[in-house]
């Protein structure tokens, strides 16, 4: 009877009033962004952005610097709130969630930040164990097993006792990845996961992203500039420009697209619709003119 009661409690905790998991809400689209508008004074970042992320796929969000890729991730996870439009996660408009509901939803997310964002006063082991200690009542022995398994997956089981300040940038990113997946999330979000990694680590991470996505049946969102790596791992890519989706499709489709912007970005060309130079007066005029001294 006690087991039955505990089972009921677990079921209630899992469904927790949100209805995220209910079979009735199941659709192929996990995240839908509709008519999103967001601006950071003085310039608009997104103007009527529409984008759909499919369940179980690896979706890449690419675009030139300053197009708002990281901002989009923060909007999807409601670290920022859109000024207009809506973002639906499993059919739920995340702007309508209370704080408690939002935290319940975020337990389904794992996020790898650009700089790792490890907690500097905790060891590598404790960083990875942090979400487990906060959200579960697992025994220390079980937490140890889970943490070591995740650290092994990223090749850093031997660094468990090190402090974040002792890690290289690439190692910190791998520890952060272990932490992001320690709660076995439904959605893993990677913000520039390949920056600063050596080729070996990069290859391992690319394979790990693919393997986790397929083996665990999760949905992955990658924000990255690395066209080559993204091409090997992503199922679909979105190219953002001027606050909208400029192109979308499989990486090979983007490579062969006719759009000048897509070609410039995918092939890394200096000349094209995206100017390399920020708006400035004429070069000679500025170098020789007296008024700018």
């Amino acid at each position: 009877m006690l087991i039955g009661f505990q089972g009921l409690l677990l079921f209630c905790a899992a469904t927790d009033g949100l209805g995220f998991q209910s079979l009735g809400d199941y659709s192929e689209n996990l995240i839908e962004i509709r008519d999103l508008k967001y601006s950071r004074e003085p310039r608009p970042i997104f103007e009527n952005l529409n984008l759909t992320i499919r369940r179980g796929e690896i979706t890449a969000i690419m675009g030139p610097s300053g197009t708002g890729k990281t901002t989009l991730l923060r909007l999807i996870t409601r670290q920022l709130i859109p000024q207009q439009g809506a973002i639906y996660v499993d059919g739920v408009d995340i702007a309508t969630l209370t704080q408690a509901q939002l935290y319940t939803m975020r337990q389904r997310f794992g996020m790898l930040f650009q700089n790792g964002a490890l907690l500097t006063d905790l060891s590598v082991f404790e960083n990875v164990a942090f979400p487990l200690r906060e959200h579960t009542a697992l025994t220390n022995r079980l937490i140890r097993h889970i943490v070591l398994t995740k650290l092994h997956a990223v090749g850093l089981r031997g660094a468990a006792d090190m402090m974040p300040s002792e890690l290289s940038g690439g190692m910190a990113r791998r520890v952060a990845l272990a932490r992001a997946m320690v709660m076995d999330p439904d959605i893993l979000i990677y913000d520039e996961p390949f920056v600063g990694l050596d080729p070996i680590s990069m290859g391992v991470i690319v394979r790990l992203v693919r393997r986790m996505n397929d083996a665990l049946g999760i949905t992955s969102i990658i924000v990255s500039h690395d066209v080559e790596e993204v091409a090997t791992v992503a199922d679909r890519s979105f190219l953002l420009s001027d606050g909208k989706v400029a192109a979308s499709g499989r990486p090979e489709e983007l490579r062969t697209a006719n759009s000048e912007l897509v070609r410039q970005f995918m092939h890394g060309m200096a000349d094209g619709p995206v100017a390399f130079h920020y708006d400035a007066p004429g070069y000679a005029e500025q170098l020789l003119g007296r008024d700018t001294e």
């Binding site: 996870t77 975020r106 930040f113 700089n115 964002a117 490890l118 979400p131």
Partner: peptide, 22 residues
Amino acid sequence: GLMKATDQLSAMEMMAVNPVKR
């Protein structure tokens, strides 16, 4: 301030941990 600048507080938020409380 440094925790904020290095996204540690945002990371806590994303792990569904309230940084004000923690």
